[in-house]
């Protein structure tokens, strides 16, 4: 299993932003890896640091107002140690990214085929004609019907789902080892979302692309990923297989997040919510467990700093994890 080196290895990633109020830490002690052909989910609510993690790995955070530490190895090269110039060369070739809003990544003034061909020529020494042919080919592969004539369309002439397919085509045209997808289906209708997630699964499997899928939606993770990393307040609080997390979560936040989602058979019953306790603010972080002010299982011991505990096939940032039998996504049959 471990003979092959993972496509992406992130170690001890720290991100902080410089604000008028001083340095604010957005990501702390984040480490994970993604193997070839694997899709790993990074899940969290707003402010969890999941997008800052993605932008840091891609080298897309503003140099002046942010500080990034740690390493992110892609094909043996540390992305975080590269100069902006070196980074521009690998970005797109070794590492692709897709965003929630495709219009932000597409230039409204150029035909989509030309934009993809430009990406091809930025990384490969091929003729214009070959690049254009490659663009049509990849557009067909991401499910754009009649790709040859659609490649001459401008972004505004396409629907949201088609634009998202174009962005995926552009990110994958150079067959990068790693694809980072930040909420790629959040703005899409649910029937289109199902198609795009299916496309990501197929492309990852066929090309061996390692995918980091960033989302707030546990349903999307369940349908797409093999492993999950749950983030809260800038830290990974639980990392394990998706089925294991949904069946038997060991961190109270993972469990609470699952319980918040309406589920079949519980029509009109009150949902679990995670109230923000009075006096707790996302800006003021407790020195111990960061989830403590909102945790239903908090105890005195939780006020001490919480390391990410390595349990072999799972990692949990909760000192009480083995004392709690937390509910998951399905009722557990008592043995």
């Amino acid at each position: 299993m471990m003979a092959e080196r993972p496509a992406l290895v992130v170690r001890n990633l720290e991100v902080s932003f410089l604000t008028v109020d001083g340095e604010v830490q957005a990501v702390r002690d984040v480490s994970f890896e993604v193997g070839r052909g694997e899709i790993v989910g990074l899940v969290g609510e707003s402010g969890s640091g999941k997008s800052a993690t993605a932008l840091a790995i891609m080298g897309l955070l503003p140099v002046v107002s942010s500080r990034v530490r740690g390493s992110a190895m892609v094909s043996g090269v540390d992305m975080l140690a590269l100069s902006p110039r070196q980074l521009a060369r690998v970005r797109g070739r070794d590492m692709g990214m897709i965003f929630q809003e495709p219009m932000s990544a597409l230039d409204p003034l150029f035909r989509i085929g030309d934009q993809i061909a430009e990406t091809v020529r930025a990384h490969q020494r091929v003729s214009r004609r070959a690049a254009a042919a490659r663009a049509v080919e990849i557009l067909g592969e991401v499910g754009i019907p009649d790709a040859a004539s659609r490649s001459r369309a401008y972004p505004h002439q396409l629907s949201g789902g088609m634009r998202q397919r174009v962005m995926i085509a552009m990110a994958l045209v150079s067959e990068p080892a790693v694809l980072i997808a930040d909420e790629p289906t959040t703005a899409l209708d649910v029937t289109v979302q199902a198609q795009i997630l299916g496309l990501l699964r197929r492309l990852s499997r066929d090309h061996g692309t390692a995918v980091v899928l960033i989302t707030h939606d546990l349903g999307v993770v369940a349908e797409t990923c093999s492993r999950i990393h749950v983030m809260y307040s800038g830290e990974i609080v639980e990392a394990c297989g998706v089925d294991e997390a949904l069946l038997a979560p060991e961190h109270p936040y993972t469990s609470a997040l699952i319980q918040c989602i309406p589920r079949a058979g519980r029509h009109r019953q009150p949902l679990h919510s995670i109230p923000r306790r009075r006096g707790s603010s996302p800006d003021v972080r407790p020195s111990g467990c960061r989830f403590l002010p909102r945790c239903a299982h908090a105890a005195e011991i939780c006020k001490a700093p919480q390391p990410l505990l390595d349990l072999g096939d799972r990692a949990v940032r909760c000192v009480r994890h083995d004392q709690l039998a937390l509910p998951g996504a399905v009722e557990r049959v008592p043995q």
């Binding site: 649910v190 199902a194 198609q195 299916g198 349908e223 089925d243 949904l246």
Partner: peptide, 25 residues
């Protein structure tokens, strides 16, 4: 088709593995 497209936050053992029932937009 809407029900089939809804992503289910449940483990694979408790989830219907259904392909999307509708194509296009």
């Amino acid at each position: 088709a809407l029900l089939a497209a809804e992503p289910e936050p449940r483990p694979s053992t408790h989830r219907a593995a259904r392909p999307p029932l509708i194509a296009g937009e």
